[in-house]
Write a protein that binds this DNA or RNA. Sequence first.
DNA 1: CCAAATCGTGGGTGTGCACCTACTAAATTA
DNA 2: TAATTTAGTAGGTGCACACCCACGATTTGG
Lengths: 148, 148
Amino acid sequence: MYTVTEIPPSLTALTTYLLSRTGKIARSRIGARLAERDLRMWHMAVLAALADAGPGSGRALAATLGVDPSDIAKILDELTVRGWTGRTRDPADRRRLLAEITPAGRLALAALTADAEAVQDRLLAPLSPAERAVLHGLLLRVFTAADG
Amino acid sequence: MYTVTEIPPSLTALTTYLLSRTGKIARSRIGARLAERDLRMWHMAVLAALADAGPGSGRALAATLGVDPSDIAKILDELTVRGWTGRTRDPADRRRLLAEITPAGRLALAALTADAEAVQDRLLAPLSPAERAVLHGLLLRVFTAADG
DNA sequence: CCAAATCGTGGGTGTGCACCTACTAAATTA
DNA sequence: TAATTTAGTAGGTGCACACCCACGATTTGG
C-alpha cells in the first residue's frame, strides 16, 4: 500500500518522479479493480486492441502491444474461456489463428472501461474538467513520442 | 522493452492508462540509469529524504516513504557500504539508529538527480518549457491528493 | 524491577512481469 | 517432395517488489 505521508521535495521537484509515482498509483488502482474480476491489464489491452483494430493473429497482437507472443497466447486462452474472444483458423494461411472479440467481449470491455473511468474520476478529482483535458493532451503527446 | 507500435485508441482515451504507461516508461528509464550504478529507486529516495529532512530513524524513514522498515534497513546497509550514509545511536533512545547523509552522499545524490533530469529532458522533449511546467503542476496536485 | 512495547535487522514468502526454449502444425522455397 | 521458415503454444526461469515473522537489544509503564 502507498500510505505516503510526506515526500522529499528533492523528489517531487522531478516531473519524472511524479510521473512514475502517479503512474504506479493509477496502475495499482486499476489493477485492483481488474483483480476483482480475476483479470489483469493485458486482458483489457487485448480486448481493446481487438475491438479497435478488428480480428488479428496472435503474432500481430503481440507486435502491436509489445508483448511476447507466448504471453498473448495465454491471455487469449483466458479470454476465450470467458467467451469474450474466439479463435478461427485463417483460411488464407492455416497456420494463423485469427482472434476476434465476441459481443460478450465488447460488453465486458465496456464494463472494464467504466471501471477505469471510475478510478480516473477519483484520481483526477483535484483537477477541473479543463485541467484534466490539458493533462490528457500533454500525456498523450509525451507517450506517443516515447517509443524506443 | 517497450517497442510499442500502435496503441488501441480505446486505451489512449483513458488518462489513467496514459498515466500508467508513461509512468512505467519513466520508471524503467530512470531505473536503467540507476541500475548502471547498481542502485534502485529507493536508494535515491532515501538519500533525498535524508538530505531534505535531516537525520532520522529507520522507522521514521519507513513511515515517511511508505516502505517496510526491514527494507529500509537493507537500503541503508547498501548506502552505508558506499559511504553515502552513516548510522549513529540516538543518545536519547539507544534503540534508535539515526541515519544521516554524508557529504559523499550529497554528491552522489546530485549525480543521481542529474541523471533523472537527463531522462526527463528526453522524455518530455515534445513539450515546451511552459507545457512541462503545466504538466508538473498538474501531476503534483494529483499526486499529493492521491494518498490512501 | 518486571512486563510490555519499540527499534533495527535477518531471513523468508508470494506475486506479477518480462523473457526464453522447445515443440507441433502448417506453409513456403528450392 | 525435401528442407527451411513461420505461427501458436506449453512450460519454465530470473528478477524486483511488497510483505511478513522472529529475534536480540533497549526503553518505558505499572
